[in-house]
Amino acid sequence: MFKIVTKRVLSAVNKLMEIEAPLVARKARPGQFIILRVRENGERIPLTVADSSKERGTITIIFQEIGKTTKELGSLQEGDYLSDFVGPLGRPMELPSSGRVVAVGGGVGIAPIYPKVKAFYDAGLEVISIIGARTADLLILEDEMRAVSSELHICTDDGTKGHHGFVSDLLQPLLDDTSKKIDEIIAVGPLPMMRVVAEQTRPYGVKTLVSLNPIMVDGTGMCGCCRVTVGGETKFSCVDGPVFDAHQVDFAELTRRSRTYLDKEKIALEKFEHECRCGGEK
């Protein structure tokens, strides 16, 4: 059993939890993820390691409540336990040795991009960060991101904070500014956002990385559920990724595959919310 030692509500739908998992904490590196199960008959879901502390023996996860499992996780409190927590899984991200990096985080993608930006920053790289969300209330980790970025640009779809528009609007001038070479771009967010960024940077030939989030089961290369086509080859995201070259990823396939269980997910969520309501009436 794995104890929730801290819980913070970051926005209406985003929560942060620090989980006691000393073995995982000893090893976790930026770019990696964990898989957890809330309880015995729960689903195994992957979440990025947002931060880790060897000293405290903890892993921090930040998640968006979108379905049954993430909502149930969000309903737990400090002192509660998760039945399973395994990791760190996936390959750690490779750090460029020098240069300028642009990090683009959209929505809940800000959480997984944060540890990467921090690693760049700690390694002495120049990091320009762009973060965006649907609306100001959903923008998370602004202060944390600012602390590890040399520049931070903000946008919201509805204009309630920063630039009124999309992360791609803010990325464009950086791509066009020929006086400052960009060595690498890393983008993490909803699939449509990553796809747009990939298309946007392709003509510029700038190395662009994305962290993919396909459906997973085991996370150790055993089931093949997480397969994605990268450069025409089938890769298993959990062991070959989750970070890949954005220009090589078949986003259409990934988008389609990630919707495999939409109808079932709806059933699971309705059942959960119904049980919550009934539980509350007692």
Binding site: N41, V217, C223, K264, A268
Partner: peptide, 24 residues
């Protein structure tokens, strides 16, 4: 499906008991 995924969903994750068990 790979047989591994198919069987793991059903045996380990008990998808045959969905939605009592969460994995579909």
């Amino acid at each position: 499906y790979s047989a591994n995924e198919f069987l793991t969903r059903v045996n380990l994750m008990k998808a045959y008991l969905f939605p009592e068990w969460d994995t579909p």
